[in-house]
Computed example of a mutant assay.
Amino acid sequence: MSTFIKDFIEREKINRRNFLFASAYGLGGAAALGALGPSMARAALTDPTIAWSYRNRTNPYWNEIVSGGEAFVESLGMSRDALTHLINEGSSEKSLADVKAILAKTDGNLALAIDTNDAPNARPVVEAVAASGAYVSTLWNKTDDLHPWDFGDNYVSHMSWSDEGPAEQTARILLEAMGGKGGVVHLGGIASNNPAIERLQGLKNALKDYPDVELLAAEPADWDTQKANQVMSAFLTRYGDEITGVHCANDTIAYGVLEALRAEGIEDMPIVSYDGNPQAVQLVADKKILATVFTNPHWGGGITASLAYHAAIGHFKPSEEPKEHREFYGPTILVQPDDALEFKANYLDSVPTYDWTDFWGPSNGPIVYK
């Protein structure tokens, strides 16, 4: 476990150094787009560029997202290299600049799948895409007042996950393992990210039924292993033995937490996480993590790209679809020690083959706003 986590942290350091020298569709490469206007949707695009905009590939979750995008591209008879990668390294500014640059380069002949990095960045991305006549499907992050049906056909779809309920499930597993008493800390994602907000809320919901458990602290770790390691080390310095459980917003955060605990000689701290990455599932099987939640990123990445592409080429008309086909939840599966190895064999060691034209098959209903 320790070797894997140290290797993971080192890969992240290398990736950050490389990013400083990266220039793929950077800020200087984009001609400024004109003033945003009404949708310029064409009847259909011909051989559109297919692009995925995401944080980075060193994160196992995002590697699976992009692997799904590559699998979709291969299903079209293309090489996986035909997928254009827009890597933003967690920068919303770079995310938007990359989108504007590729729109200028392709003259809007684009099918884009994207996680906009944070919710406020979704609107300028969508507006730029719609103004150019391209097509976009978003994943995870957008504001509640931004909807695909407000942009005709160009904003094809948005998929997120109903994280609050599953995060509450994992929290209850954690709080029970703590014996219903003690102190818990939460390490979250980027503070403005929808999943980070919902996963913390899931913990807070569960805590209402555990009056003898105190939430000692909740701080963002930005979905990052290194930052999680630093945050957890600071928690241990500040709270020491008061900490009897850790609620992690994703698996890569849990890796940093485990390393911080190991450095202090702590091997049996109850921990839960989220995402269902292969390494985390193995840690669940080994009872180093109590539970994680699988969101099927391979399917999510492939179907998001597929929706944008098939709308772009005129395979279907988004504006004629019901709203539940334009904003919907992805699937989730709770993974615990008793079923971790079986789950790993069925979903991770051998990735299922998906029909990329079954756009909503595994989805989990329309997004509900509170």
Rank of each mutant, 00 (worst) to 15 (best):
T84P: 07
M178P: 11
I190T: 13
A167R: 05
S160F: 14
L96I: 05
R172E: 14
P148S: 01
A191R: 10
L96W: 00
L86S: 07
M178W: 13
D150I: 02
R123T: 04
N121W: 04
A101C: 13
V184Y: 07
H147W: 03
N154Y: 10
L146Q: 03
R172Y: 09
M178V: 08
N193S: 15
S192T: 15
D115P: 05
N154F: 09
K181N: 12
D153R: 12
G165F: 13
L146R: 05
M159W: 11
D107C: 01
I102T: 03
G188C: 03
V184N: 06
R172A: 07
T138K: 01
T170Y: 06
A101S: 13
S157F: 08
S137E: 01
L139V: 11
G77M: 10
K142S: 04
D118N: 13
P166T: 06
I87L: 12
D153M: 08
T84G: 06
E127M: 02
V185W: 06
V136I: 07
D115A: 06
V136T: 03
L174V: 02
A111T: 02
N193G: 13
W149S: 09
S160H: 14
M178A: 10
E176H: 10
G188A: 07
V184E: 08
G189E: 10
S79G: 14
D150H: 04
S192W: 13
A191M: 10
I102V: 09
P166K: 07
E176M: 06
S162N: 15
T138A: 06
A104Q: 11
E164I: 14
R172I: 07
A171V: 11
P124C: 04
N194D: 13
V125Q: 01
H158P: 06
P148E: 03
M178N: 10
H85W: 11
N109I: 02
G188S: 11
L103K: 00
G152W: 12
N117I: 15
P148N: 01
V126F: 08
A128Q: 03
D107A: 08
N121H: 03
T143A: 05
